[in-house]
Each structure stands twice: as C-alpha cells, then as structure tokens.
Simulated assay, not measured.
Amino acid sequence: MLVVDDEAIIAELWILYVELMGLEVCGAAATADQAIALAEAHRPAVVLMDMRLAGQKDGVDAALAIHDSVGSRVIFITGSQEPATLARINTDHPSAVLIKPVAEPLLRRTVNAALADCGMA
C-alpha cells in the first residue's frame, strides 16, 4: 500500500489505519512525482491518494501515471466535494472516492474491496 498526502499528520493517520489492518505500507509521498517513483519502485496493489498535493501536479496526475505504469488500484481521499474536482478524479476511474474525514471502518471496507478487486483479498 502506498499513501499519498502532502499533510504529514494525515499521511501518518492513513499509515496507522493501514497497519492496523495488518497491511504493509511501502511508503508515503507528498508530491505526485514522489508518488510515481515510489509506485514504480514498489508496485503497490492499492494507493491511497489525496487530490491536492505539494508541487504543481495533483493526485489525478499521479494516479494516471501510476495506473499506466503500475496498474495499482487508486482510492482517492479528498476534502473537496466540488463537482469540478470530483469530475477530474473520475477521469482516472478510481477504485473509490472518499470524502474527508474518513473513519477507520470505512477505510477498512474500501481497502478490502480494492484488494478483492485485484484478487488480493
């Protein structure tokens, strides 16, 4: 599992939730370029992706590149419910889109569904 969020405290929360599920986190990234590099190096089955990232590229830019090169399932976690943002997210055919704040049980169900979708659950 790869965690992508430019807010360190939020990334740490997602990492904690994932580890409590008994899953391994291969890394955390704050930028799209870091996310792409980590995904290509570790080839995670699932990526937790924030929409707004540090730098010039956003989560959709990262997700599209990761999907093309690695094929990971991407779960977007965003604080925005703006139609334009959600439409941009949906250009990547995400595994799921969760709106912050996200409780651990919902994240667990969503991750398990994504893992099942790629034959890993």
Rank of each mutant, 00 (worst) to 15 (best):
M1I: 04
V4P: 09
V4S: 11
D5R: 05
D6R: 14
D6F: 05
I10Q: 09
A11D: 06
A11H: 09
L13T: 11
I15G: 02
I15N: 05
V18K: 11
E19M: 05
L20H: 07
M21N: 01
G22W: 11
L23D: 06
L23A: 06
L23R: 15
C26G: 01
G27Q: 08
A30Y: 04
T31W: 12
T31Q: 12
T31H: 13
A35N: 10
A37E: 14
L38Y: 00
E40N: 14
E40M: 09
H42E: 06
R43W: 00
P44R: 03
V46C: 01
L48W: 05
L48G: 04
M49E: 00
M51G: 10
R52E: 13
Q56G: 15
D58E: 10
G59F: 08
L64V: 08
A65L: 08
I66D: 12
I66Y: 14
I66F: 05
H67S: 08
G71I: 03
I75V: 14
I75K: 03
G79Q: 08
Q81P: 00
A84Q: 11
H93R: 14
P94H: 06
S95K: 01
A96L: 02
I99L: 10
P101W: 12
P105V: 10
L106V: 15
T110L: 01
V111T: 08
A113D: 15
A114C: 09
G119H: 14
